[in-house]
Amino acid sequence: MTLLILFIGLYGLIVSDNLIRKIMCLTIVQGTVIMSFLTSGFQINAAAPILSVPESAFVDPVPQALMLTAIVIGVCFNALALAFVVRYFQQHGTIEVSEIHER
């Protein structure tokens, strides 16, 4: 399932002409990677190890902690990329890639 979404993201990244759409597709790719990492710690009917270690099976907390960091980094990356798109628009008057290369 994550693989399917990953390929949707990659496809969108390649075919889309609009820079904002490209960045959205990049976010989708990042999201699938994060989902895939999260599933590595997941078990059905397992408890969360908060404050004390549960007696039954419990979810591995490490991927969740790591992915929190990855999400934060992803947000920073998106913010910077969008800032570049704003500047791109100010300089070229458009954010469609094909229009810029036609000129």
């Binding site: 960045i23 790719v29 895939s36 990492f37 590595s40 791109y88």
Partner: peptide, 23 residues
């Protein structure tokens, strides 16, 4: 601006690949 945006998109794909491999 164009060069940084290009670098940004490609390097983000690269690090996504590396993170998936780490996973």
């Amino acid at each position: 601006t164009e060069a940084s945006l290009k670098y940004m998109i490609l390097s983000c794909l690269g690090t996504a690949g590396i993170l998936l491999a780490t996973a």
